[in-house]
Write a protein that binds this DNA or RNA. Structure first.
Lengths: 190, 190
DNA sequence: TTTAACTTTCAGAAAATTCTGAAACTTCAA
DNA sequence: TTGAAGTTTCAGAATTTTCTGAAAGTTAAA
């Protein structure tokens, strides 16, 4: 099994980029290859196409499994395991965000929360805590928001995306109708 | 200049996480240190606090400059350069997103666009192109949207965030009032 | 059971990244 | 100009990450 130049350029590029997204080059290549393959692939095919060792492929599969990005198939009469991406591209994006949040943001939030429980020993610690609180609040608001977007049904999300900055207009609109039921707008302090 | 345990744990953690955000451990530590310092720091102070070489600090400063994350100060009567984070935490988040987009998403979009110009040679290339088109469209919509959010004024953005999933309700609300002026909703195909 | 087909593991090799520190460079006050 | 105070550069050392391939492990048909 060998890749056409078109597929090759995609796979290699994805390998480089993939490393930025939390997995290494070969794992990125493996995933890219599965995405553009119209049928599930077995480990040997991947090793051959990407010119990497069989052992490396095995590690990569394990990693992609832990990211919940792939799916295993059993083809009757064939003892090899076949793999394909799980879900569609949208699901992939969701999964990657989700996993990254678990690995990167959650531990940071937890550390910040712990630190913020301690009373500051002096002015410089008080200053530091203020900054940490800002970061904490930003991360918390951000993750909550992303979580809500992810839980939103795809239709509404799509509308929202297409709406883009127009969302501001809708909100103004709402505010006009419902104005003066709430306190004055709370500005972000800068 | 030495760090209190509180600041140290923040700085070290940020160093580990920072490496996920596109810069290496020491660069992350340097930035974290500047964020929690109530006054600008010079290169020697950073080298001492973080216990790294002076040369390494110089590289780090260069890197943070290229990310537009820091600001240089000249203190009269002192020939050293002093550094502090540029803007507030919110600006930092914006800058990091922006820079990452430039470095990661833009090149991918450009590659995908190029590939999609070529006619597929066979069925399997046609399948691959379909998938690439999906990825292309997702990235494009996503970046456009993020761009618009970034261009939105902070007040509205804050309202939008606080609104969270409630945004769906506002949209429904709008739709009820303005319904039947546009075509039927376009679902995401899955 | 046996055994052939296949998968996983992991120690060490290879590669990539990061870091150090000495030397080169820059700047400015005297 | 000179030289002291500072900064940057970069070759090679140190460290970290990734990859290989042989050996151990698993599975299922016969």
């Amino acid at each position: 099994m060998e890749m056409s130049p078109m597929i090759e350029s995609f796979v290699f590029h994805f390998g480089e980029m993939g490393s930025r997204w939390g997995f290494n080059r070969t794992v990125g290549q493996m995933y890219a290859l599965m995405v553009v393959s119209d049928k599930p692939l077995n480990a040997n095919q991947m090793a051959q196409a990407l010119n990497i060792s069989r052992g490396n492929v095995s590690m990569g599969i394990k990693e992609l499994h832990s990211w919940q990005l792939i799916q295993q198939h059993h083809i009757p009469g064939d003892r090899k395991d076949y793999f394909s991406p799980k879900g569609d591209i949208w699901d992939m994006a969701n999964t990657v965000f989700e996993e990254r949040r678990k690995r990167e943001v959650d531990p940071t939030l937890s550390l910040l929360r712990d630190i913020l429980l301690d009373a500051p020993a002096d002015d410089s610690e008080a200053y530091a805590q203020d900054k940490m609180r800002e970061i904490h609040d930003l991360l918390e608001t951000g993750t909550q928001w992303v979580g809500e977007l992810q839980r939103m049904n795809p239709d509404n999300l799509s509308t929202l995306m297409k709406l883009g900055a127009g969302v501001a207009k809708v909100m103004d609109f709402k505010e006009q109708l419902l104005s003066s039921t709430e306190g004055k707008s709370d500005k972000r302090d800068r």
